[in-house]
Structures are given as structure tokens and as C-alpha cells.
Amino acid sequence: MGQYLKRTDPSFLSKAFGFAALSDTIRAYPELTSKQESGTGLWVNLRAAGERASPGQTSDSL
């Protein structure tokens, strides 16, 4: 995801949105899910319709 953003918008910075890292930015959006896989980076998807994270639940725990 980070490499894609760098190619499509080289000026993108998570810090401009108040987050230290891209993964923190993604976790802030409840309509997104993320999965960290060893050696492949961070995979991001839209949450399925009707699927909601419960309060305090991160996308990594789904």
C-alpha cells in the first residue's frame, strides 16, 4: 500500500493526517481492514457490507 501511494502521490505523508505511520492511518478508518503478512507488507481491503468492527477492535484482530 505504501509503495502504491508513493507512486501515485509522492507527496502523501501520514503525518499530514495526524498519524505516525500509514498503518495507523488505515486503522483509523472503520471501513477498512488490514492484514500484515510476513515479507509482503500490509494488505488493505474494504470491510464487507454489514461487517463492523466492535469498539476497541482493530482491523488486525478480525
Rank of each mutant, 00 (worst) to 15 (best):
S11R: 08
L13W: 07
P55Q: 02
S59C: 06
P10H: 04
K15C: 00
A21M: 12
G41W: 15
A16D: 13
T25H: 06
T33V: 07
S23V: 11
F12T: 00
E37Y: 11
S23D: 15
A53P: 14
T33Q: 06
M1N: 06
G50M: 07
S23P: 00
S23Y: 02
N45L: 05
G2V: 13
S34P: 00
L46M: 06
P10M: 02
T33W: 00
T25V: 15
M1G: 08
L5V: 02
Y4I: 13
E51A: 11
G18V: 01
P10Q: 05
A28W: 05
A28G: 06
Y29N: 12
T33P: 01
K35T: 05
S11N: 08
S14W: 02
P55C: 01
A49M: 09
R52A: 13
F12V: 02
K35S: 12
A53T: 07
L32P: 00
S38D: 06
Q57M: 05
K35F: 06
R27E: 14
R7A: 11
A49F: 14
T40K: 15
A28N: 10
F12A: 01
Y29S: 05
A49N: 14
A48T: 03
Y4C: 03
Y29A: 04
K35R: 10
Y4A: 13
S38G: 06
T40Y: 15
T8S: 14
P55I: 04
D60H: 03
D24T: 09
A28K: 11
S59F: 00
L42W: 02
L32A: 02
W43M: 14
G18T: 03
P30G: 10
V44L: 02
P10K: 02
R7P: 02
A48Y: 03
P10A: 05
E31M: 07
A53Q: 13
E51R: 12
I26V: 15
D24M: 04
D60L: 07
P30N: 13
L13I: 13
N45R: 10
P10R: 06
P10N: 03
A21L: 09
P55Y: 05
F12P: 01
S11T: 11
G50V: 09
G50E: 11
R47H: 12
A21H: 14
Y29H: 09
E37Q: 10
S23H: 10
E37R: 12
Q36F: 07
L5R: 08
A49Y: 13
A53D: 06
F19G: 01
D9Y: 09
G56S: 09
S59R: 05
L22N: 02
S54G: 11
G39W: 13
Q36R: 11
R47V: 09
T25F: 12
K6Y: 05
M1D: 08
G50L: 05
R7E: 10
K35M: 05
R7N: 14
A28D: 12
N45T: 06
R7V: 10
T58Y: 07
R47Y: 04
P55S: 01
L32R: 01
A28I: 03
G41I: 10
G56H: 12
S34E: 11
M1W: 07
E37N: 12
P30E: 14
Q36W: 10
I26N: 01
L42K: 02
K6S: 10
S54D: 07
W43A: 05
A16H: 15
Y29P: 02
D24H: 15
A20I: 03
P55R: 04
G2T: 10
S23M: 09
I26A: 04
